[in-house]
């Protein structure tokens, strides 16, 4: 194989960007929660798996295509997140870091093990779509293309919601100055519930997309949460747009490393990037500000 063939380079770039889009969707949700309430949600990847297994069940029993199951799964997980915030996460907001880490870790363990009880540790997949699209010499698998494009669309939709919509601005106000926001008549608790709901929904959407292209099991969350951490550190903690760039960057670098050496080394990329960034810039590449 000619490694420096431009077609191969382009092929790797595109598949990297498509995988990166999925990472970005996942990591943006994690970063949104951190930005708004300074909580690191260790159960974020498990919320993703809730999406993935829902898509699996809907496909298996009703033959529903994952793209359509988004319509059911995303709102459902939104409400799950919304109420999880209300009964649990809200109580550790403003507490020392350890409290929120452990509370969300508790949620993570519970979800993983419910998953194991229901589905066992065997890998599942949703083979709803096959085949590739050919552009000259470049072949892109259809499920990857669809998953990548939907992920980008959803991430951008949330981004513009935060930037433009009235409610989105309220979310940003709570992120920057919760006290001031409260004085200005914003229902801070409700905004936090909305935020966590949105983040959970983003994770679930990423999960549905994931189900189309990878196989997964209840314990797959660990890899993804680690990647998401790498991404938000690279992009800057609490920085929504930073997570988008970080996700795409990780996807592309992983794709090239996998192309040129082995997929095992590609696994290591996220951590090496993470550690490197922390050593060079202890606060991440884009500081800690929320958006911008």
């Amino acid at each position: 194989m000619e490694l420096l063939d431009p077609a191969i380079l382009l092929q790797l770039l595109i598949s990297g960007l498509l995988a990166g889009a999925l990472y970005a969707l996942l990591a943006c949700g994690l970063n949104l929660v951190f930005g708004v309430m300074r909580v690191i949600n260790l159960a974020h990847a498990e919320l993703m798996l809730v999406g993935a297994f829902s898509a699996y069940l809907l496909y298996r029993f009703f033959g529903l295509h994952p793209v359509f199951s988004l319509v059911i799964v995303v709102p459902a997980v939104f409400f799950f997140g919304y109420y999880l915030q209300r009964v649990l996460i809200e109580r550790v907001v403003g507490q020392p870091l350890l409290s929120s880490l452990l509370a969300t870790y508790g949620v993570s363990i519970i979800l993983v093990n419910i998953g194991l009880l229901l589905f066992s540790a065997d890998y599942k997949s949703v083979p709803a779509m096959q085949g590739s699209i050919l552009f000259g010499e470049i072949a892109i698998s259809k499920p990857r293309a669809v998953a990548g494009l939907i992920s980008v669309a959803l991430t951008l939709a949330i981004y513009f919601f935060l930037e433009r919509a009235h409610l989105g601005k309220a979310v940003r106000a709570v992120a920057e100055q919760p006290q001031v926001a409260a004085i200005c008549g914003i229902d801070v608790r409700r905004i936090r519930m909305l935020t966590f709901g949105m983040a959970a929904a983003m994770a679930a959407a990423a999960g549905v997309m994931l189900a189309m292209i990878y196989s997964f099991s209840p314990i797959s969350g660990a890899d993804f949460i680690q990647k998401s951490f790498a991404i938000i550190i690279i992009g800057g903690m609490g920085n929504f747009a930073g997570a988008l760039y970080g996700g795409l960057l990780l996807g592309v670098v992983e794709s090239y490393v996998a192309g040129f050496s082995s997929s095992q080394w590609a696994e290591a990329v996220a951590y090496l990037l993470l550690v490197a960034v922390l050593l060079i810039r202890p606060t991440g590449l884009k500081g800690t500000a929320y958006v911008k």
């Binding site: 870091l97 951490f229 090496l272 922390l278």
Partner: peptide, 22 residues
């Protein structure tokens, strides 16, 4: 790692374990 504060330290240590495993 101990130059890092709060969440950064926690995440760096998580990463460190993974680097070890890899």
């Amino acid at each position: 790692t101990l130059r890092l504060r709060g969440p950064y330290f926690a995440i760096a240590m998580l990463g460190l374990n993974e680097v070890g495993r890899i």
